[in-house]
Simulated assay, not measured.
Amino acid sequence: MSSTVTQEAVQHASGDPELAFIHDETSAPPKFRDPLEERAYLKHRLVLAFRVFAQFGFCEGVAGHITVRDPVDPTSFWVNPFGKHFSLIRDEDLIRVDHSGKVVEGGKNRRLNYAAYAIHSEIHSARPDVLCAAHSHSVYGRAFCATGRTLDMLTQDSCVFHNDHILYSNFAGVVLASEEGKAIAKQLGPKKAALLGNHGLLTVGPSIEAVVAWFVLLDKCCQVQLAADASSNGSGKPLVKIGEVEAASTWQALGHPAGGYFMGLPLFQVAEREFGESTFLGRGLEPDE
């Protein structure tokens, strides 16, 4: 047996990572020829994303925002109006903001959460690959972000963020300056998630569904980490961590954007019910008859 084959066998002892998902058109976001049609589709998916966040309790007062890059004018993005509860947002409520911070269109409430602009405009500018970005002050996210650490690779789920998340430890107060947004974007680099020290969680990606799935999963990973740490401290026994090779193999199976998109679809299936909708796999295209 060649050394190459031997190494491959060691890296993927649990099986071929390609078998984790079925790779066909249903495991990727739809493509559109008409940017106006795509805009309407993405706006509704964004509204569903807010319903998912509301279901998980990620609406903390007026804090939190999810943005999606506008396909008609990519130098602008859609975001929730400041002060409206996530569970009440509809397509017509969303506001579109350009990269200078001007609200160029939207619903009756055109208030802009300036922190959303300061963070998201810099991320969208620095990362052309990012369609969507989400930030909220989830309970377990906030708790873990106070520890000054990144996640340990303790479970299969945490491996989705293996070498793919950062700790931004410089808490300087509410992010109301573009320079702070630039610093977050720079430290995030090409990765999908950030633990914002003493603040909350941030996920970014090429689809709304992946960003939502990763945010929900990241918050749960924070919860598991906190529980495992407490258990270890109580028992005096160290935690068992996943090895580097195994973590990398698991990320290869689960951590890619296609995996994130597909993992997000069940969340959107549930959110669709609030609008009396039901589409095949929750993709938002074909009615589920």
Rank of each mutant, 00 (worst) to 15 (best):
K182A: 14
N198I: 03
H137M: 09
H99I: 06
V97S: 10
W78R: 06
E277H: 14
A116M: 12
L201Q: 10
K108Q: 14
L112Y: 12
E244Q: 11
Y261R: 01
A133G: 11
A210F: 00
D219A: 11
A253K: 11
C59N: 15
V224H: 06
A271P: 11
F82Y: 15
L267F: 14
E37N: 10
I89D: 11
P206A: 09
E18C: 00
A9M: 09
T155S: 09
T147S: 12
F268S: 03
F32N: 03
A20I: 00
F32L: 06
T6A: 14
I66A: 13
V103F: 09
F21A: 01
F53M: 15
G264N: 07
H256R: 08
K237L: 14
F215R: 03
R111Q: 14
A40L: 11
F280E: 10
E244D: 14
A247P: 03
S76C: 15
G236T: 07
Q55F: 13
Q225L: 02
R110A: 09
T155N: 02
I89H: 08
R45H: 13
K186W: 03
P206I: 00
V10R: 12
E122N: 07
S76E: 07
D164P: 03
V79G: 05
V216N: 04
H162G: 02
V139Q: 15
A118I: 04
E92M: 04
G260F: 01
A210D: 06
V175Y: 08
K241Q: 14
V5F: 12
E18L: 08
L202S: 09
A118L: 09
R142F: 15
G197F: 05
G284A: 08
V104S: 10
A126S: 07
T67K: 06
R142Y: 15
F58R: 12
F86A: 10
V103E: 10
H99E: 06
P74S: 04
D98C: 07
T6N: 07
V10D: 12
E286I: 15
L226K: 05
D152H: 11
P238M: 07
A177H: 13
E274Y: 15
P238F: 10
P128T: 00
D70P: 03
L46I: 09
I184V: 08
A228T: 13
P206K: 02
H12D: 03
A126Y: 00
A183M: 10
V212W: 08
F50E: 06
E8H: 11
R96M: 06
L46Y: 11
K191W: 02
Y117K: 08
H12I: 00
P71Y: 06
